[in-house]
Structure formats: C-alpha cells, structure tokens
C-alpha cells in the first residue's frame, strides 16, 4: 500500500499505457505525470487518442497494458477509491432528462456519499450560476445549461482531479465563456485539471502545461507560460502535418 507521502505531489501518474480496440491501437505507450494543482490541456486532431486517454483516466476503459495511478492508487485494484477523487465532464452531460436538475444532483450525491448534500447542491449550483433553474427538468434545458449542471455534478463530491473531454462541444459562445470562467476558478483553486479541447486559444489561456497528441502518442509537450498562441499554432500544425491529417 502506497501512502500519500510516497506519492508526493503527483495527482496522476501514467506508465507505458496502451489501449487497443480490436486491432486498432488508440493509445500507443503514454507516459504522463500530472502534478497536484496543475492544469494540463491536451490538444490533438480527431482520432489522436485524447478521448480514449480521458476515458482510461476516468476508469471507464480498461488499459490494454501499462499502469495508471490516481493519487497513488492503482485504478486496477482501487477503482472505487480512485473514482471518488475524480470529477468527469464529457460531451454528454450524464443527466437524466426526466428528472429535475436537483434530483439529478441528489442522485449523484448519494452515489458519492456526499455529506450534507442539500447544502452542497446549493453551493455548486451557485457556482455555475444556475440556482433559478435548479428544480426544472433537465429536458427543458438548452445544451449550455445542461453542461453547466454537468460541471456542477462533476464538482459535487469535491474531486481533487477534474477530467474534461472537450467540454465546450455543442455550446454557444456565451456558454463557452461561462464554462471557462468556472474552469479558471477551479484551476485557481489548485484543483488538478486535465482537459482535452480543440480551442487552442482558450486552452492555452487555461493551461499551466500543454500536450499535443497524435496517433496514440504524446508528440509535443510545453509549459503553458513559455508558449504564445502563435508558437502553439505552429507546433500544432507541424504535428498534424506530420501525422498526415487534414487541418
């Protein structure tokens, strides 16, 4: 059993991770460390393996080989403990359309054993600015509102690590702006954030470190502050051109 102290300040540790779908290698040897409080943003063309990586980290997909440690916990043996530390936001809001937002949050709160659930639901709803719509049914919400509640749901159990897979997909400009507002707040709160996105500009703005993936591998790594947008765009273009992907 690894104690917290041995782990040091690593929130996520990935070693030699591969994942193959039938014969298609979606991840081909990923080594990655994410420090506590870091905001890691992952870019890459479609099919680069970004979503697969997030899904492996969020314990939905089993690795074909390699190890994944979440806060020092091997997700193979301690999946349930690891899941408590993670909050996930993906393309889908994970909200039941026939239930109200409150009922959805209450349901997830019970699964995560959130103490003092009612107060906490109030807190996260305020955070995403949706208090007025809390008792309305999810089916009446726009995509942007659903995604805001999805973020509230992901934050409900105070996860140490937020995993976001293209959270801005299908959102309008205003919703995207609000989403990033919340995320920046989260990053400032020293929560570990790992996110994939297509939006280079906003991604760069949020990142304390950034990666570019291509064809199942990490092909570029850079510190968020040392790179400007032009530099990132150049690096991204180089990578995608190399991989033979139409830009």
């Amino acid at each position: 059993m690894i104690s917290r102290d041995d782990v040091g300040d690593k929130a996520i540790e990935v070693r030699k991770l591969t994942r193959t779908f039938d014969d298609f290698p979606a991840l081909r040897g990923i080594d990655l460390e994410v420090a506590r409080g870091e905001s890691l943003v992952i870019f890459g063309p479609n099919g680069a393996g970004k979503t697969t990586l997030i899904r492996v980290l969020s314990t939905i997909i089993r690795p074909s080989s390699g190890t994944v440690l979440i806060d020092g916990l091997n997700i193979k043996e301690h999946a349930e403990k690891a899941r408590r530390l993670i909050g996930v936001v993906s393309h889908h809001p994970f909200l039941y359309a026939n239930l109200s937002a409150y009922e959805n949050l209450e349901f997830y709160g019970r699964l995560y054993d959130v103490p003092d659930l009612k107060t906490r639901i109030g807190e996260v709803t305020t955070l995403v600015g949706m208090t007025a719509r809390l008792h309305d049914r999810v089916s009446t919400f726009s995509r942007g509102m659903q995604q805001r509640f999805a973020i509230a749901r992901a934050l409900l159990h105070r996860p140490q690590i937020m995993l976001l897979d293209e959270p801005e997909t299908g959102l309008d400009q205003q919703a995207v702006a609000l989403l990033w507002e919340v995320l920046r707040g989260e990053a400032a709160a020293r929560r570990t954030v790992v996110m994939t996105t297509h939006n280079l500009e906003r991604g760069l703005d949020l990142a304390s470190r950034l990666l570019i993936m291509s064809r199942g591998k990490i092909v570029f790594e850079g510190g968020g502050k040392s790179l400007d947008l032009a530099g990132l765009k150049q690096a991204y273009q180089d990578v995608t051109a190399e991989a033979g992907c139409p830009q």
Binding site: S58, T59, I60, E80, K81, R83, R84, I86, V88, S90, H91, H92, P93, F94, L95, Y96, A97, Y108, L111, Y112, D113, R153
Partner: peptide, 15 residues
C-alpha cells in the same frame, strides 16, 4: 444509454 448517463454511473464509485 441515451444521454450517455450510463457513463455517469460507471465513473461514480458505485460498484
């Protein structure tokens, strides 16, 4: 499956 909710269950600590 319709709203991807099943993934929400899978990432939760519900065994």
């Amino acid at each position: 499956k319709e709203d991807g909710c099943f993934e929400g269950l899978l990432v939760s600590p519900a065994s």
